[in-house]
Design a protein around this nucleic acid. Sequence first.
DNA 1: ACCTGAACACCGTTCAAGT
DNA 2: ACCTGAACACCGTTCAAGT
Lengths: 223, 223
Amino acid sequence: MSAPSTPARGRPARLDRTRTVETALQLLDDSGLDALTMRRLADAMDVRAGALYRYFATKQDLLTAMAERMLAGTSPSASGAEADWSERLTGLARTLRDTLLRHRDGARVYAGTHSIGPGTLGYAETLIGALREAGFGDEEAARGGLAVVHFTLGHTLEEQAALQPGDAGPADPDALRAAVTTERFPHLAATLPVLTGTDFEAQFEFGLRLLVQGLRELRQPRR
Amino acid sequence: MSAPSTPARGRPARLDRTRTVETALQLLDDSGLDALTMRRLADAMDVRAGALYRYFATKQDLLTAMAERMLAGTSPSASGAEADWSERLTGLARTLRDTLLRHRDGARVYAGTHSIGPGTLGYAETLIGALREAGFGDEEAARGGLAVVHFTLGHTLEEQAALQPGDAGPADPDALRAAVTTERFPHLAATLPVLTGTDFEAQFEFGLRLLVQGLRELRQPRR
DNA sequence: ACCTGAACACCGTTCAAGT
DNA sequence: ACCTGAACACCGTTCAAGT
């Protein structure tokens, strides 16, 4: 929609969507989302900022293309289609988290965009497909998939915020420890080691298991 | 830490933290997070931008204070302490969603900050306390509370993105419908009515129930 | 067709100087 | 003590003009 359409004529273009998005992702990894500006990206491409607007309508358009690029390559039902539905679902959730973790501020980029490209849609197709093929109804499959995505997004957002040293960073553990007095916040004080801990994988797996167990219960209620 | 400490001397100050945060929240509701700049906030307070820096070290500091103000008033275990743990937990999750929904871009503000003020900590205290008092171990209580918060955050982020018309907005339903062809994405095509639907409350309740059921299962395993 | 130059209308933040 | 004025070092975006 915003890419030039005609075949190469005259001297070859110095820019194109694909290479620009790749450079933007490198810049993201090197400097973080706050430092990713159109001007700095243009510098990295040896071009003036204005030139980028021939390939991306807005910065938002660039960010959406970056999110799409991150998601591309996750979908092809690679997560063994023969496995149990709960294993497939678990694997797909892990894939999403890993994908977002692969780039600095990946979760923030993903959260701020809504790609409808093949990578993003392919991922959603596989995720919801895993539930539909397991026998879940359309509504349960869709809502279950969304719940998994929303949890994964919220978790990874916090995980990356906790990881980076940035000033937009989290309440650092020391400040939290100082604020959580046993008298005022006894429950927080008791769980402080977990709350300030850094075993994000265990935290992710715990929440994910809750969701999967909830879905299992939906299929085989106790009563 | 960044508020002036001495008692009123000379003519009264035109600014203070509390009033400035309140004005900022109004500005947020009126114009959205992207339009909330230090200069515009200063205008609203009839002051020059530089003056704000006597009360807030950075814009990030202001945003954290805004998040804290949003959360303040949610905590006082108002959600009947006599109820069943699952009802308390469900109520507390709903309270968080409602709180974030009460302000435009509320979830984005919350996601970008990490307050350790009494409102935010009080909420966490009540949430984790509900699980500990129900007999969950420290680790399960902390991880369970975090899972609920992360899901609620991810959900509300998407809900507010879908609601607002902004250009950072979601893939609008029409574009999504056009991209989701039955041949390429059969599962998405089948669930499109749910995926493009706007019953966010039902979606939230569905995910929340999964988490609660998962926690219930943890206490009374089938086998 | 593709990119530059230059501008427009902004930003967050700092700090000497006024009152 | 509190705020202004003015600056610094940037932003995203547009668009006539060059090649």
